[in-house]
Design a protein around this nucleic acid. Structure first.
Lengths: 224, 224
DNA sequence: TTGCATACTACACGTACGTATAGTCGTTGG
DNA sequence: CCAACGACTATACGTACGTGTAGTATGCAA
């Protein structure tokens, strides 16, 4: 393949959004998000309209490029959560996917969590910490019931919510940045009723199993 | 690498468990389960103590080998569920992982669901259908509350349960067939209290959100 | 005993990957 | 004006992969 050198541009426009380096990082983030981390550097370079060698020039290696994508996605997630009012993690990602500008980040984060490893853990911990403050204030406001172990509960809720999202997305034949919004909407719609039912009325008709378990483990860790 | 030809064996011991073909399939299943479907045929062959070419001879291609693993895992899952009393899908897999003979199958199934695609869908649908009969009888027995949409509920519960398991497993550094049992035990222990709490008491303090949603979608589909 | 099908290995082929290297072009500082 | 530097490309290198091919050994039927 032949690459057209773009002439006449300043080599280093730091304030600009169009440096080849940024384009490369954004292209990588999208490729990783949609095609997985096995995607080749040649495909990434092609999407950014540069030669594959430029990846090495700017980032040193494919792994380093992925590292920059991780950082960028995490800082973007942080920034978005600061500016927006908090919402439960899964719901938040689903909402975020509606905003076309952020589809790639949502997919990238879900991909990272799906594949496990340090990056996925970082995203998860961030979402859990975030949901924790949200849940705490909801408990204070009397909307959500207090838990015997609120940290364990929020971990459980986030991990199952994100996990369910990942599994549901994996069942859709071809997720792209164009259809991720509607697919997410559909998934959220499908779980809305069961989730609200479960959150409002529970699942079991009596307390026997819970009480037996509480007896079995001894006194629960406060916050009764 | 040099392979020792095993001489003096009958070429086709149909009743036997030690034909190279079966050994290859079992080795593939374990490799796929632990290392993912990207594992090379050379690694698989090495684990079965045969040459890589034998995979092509017996199965034709790597994809076909994976197909046989899918079939074998699904039929094994079916057989196990027939002989055992049913239990909710996630819990069932966690229990099954304790039995060392079946660790590979559990990992393989979770891996398939994680990676999406037809095989993962097949496993999922099987577990959902199974959980459905279990839930129905639990409702009849008065243990579980009826739902406004019991099919949607069981899909929701299975997909979130399996998804949560996948995400939790992904956070553990190195899952092998040796430690999968204890890791599963730990995960199940961590979610036990939050899950029982949620299933028994729900999460929300009042019915407002649910009632608003029911009003919003119009009459719920029977089974009120 | 001969001949053939089967199980199996050794080796080669083509491809795709990440990366390394050499070189070109354009800008900039002195 | 020129030397040095950074951005960028072209191309080559080494490796690992799935697969194809040729060949050998073995059991069995005729």
């Amino acid at each position: 393949m032949q690459y057209m050198r773009i002439v006449g541009r300043l080599p280093d426009r730091h304030g600009d959004e169009l440096t080849a380096r940024t384009r490369l990082r954004d292209a990588a983030l999208e490729c990783f998000a949609v095609d997985g981390f096995g995607v080749s550097v040649r495909v990434i370079a092609e999407r950014a309209h540069v030669s594959p060698g430029l990846i090495r020039h700017h980032f040193g290696s494919k792994d380093a490029l992925r590292g920059e994508c991780d950082e960028h996605a995490l800082s973007t997630l942080r920034r978005l959560k600061e500016s927006a009012l908090s919402a439960p993690a899964g719901t938040f990602l689903a909402q975020l996917a509606q905003v076309r500008d952020y589809s790639a980040y949502v997919l990238y984060i879900l991909r990272s969590v799906r594949d496990g490893g340090p990056a996925g853990r970082a995203f998860l911990e961030h979402m859990i910490a975030d949901a924790e403050t949200y849940t705490d204030s909801a408990v204070d406001a009397g909307i959500v019931r207090p838990s015997r172990d609120s940290r364990a509960r929020v971990r459980y809720l986030v991990m199952e919510g994100i996990g369910g999202l990942i599994v549901a997305l994996g069942q859709h034949p071809k997720i792209t940045m164009d259809n991720i919004g509607e697919v997410m909407t559909q998934i959220v719609a499908e779980v809305a009723l069961p989730r609200l039912e479960l959150f409002t009325e529970g699942l079991l008709t009596d307390r026997r199993m819970l009480d037996e378990y509480l007896l079995y483990i001894g006194d629960p860790p406060a916050t009764a």
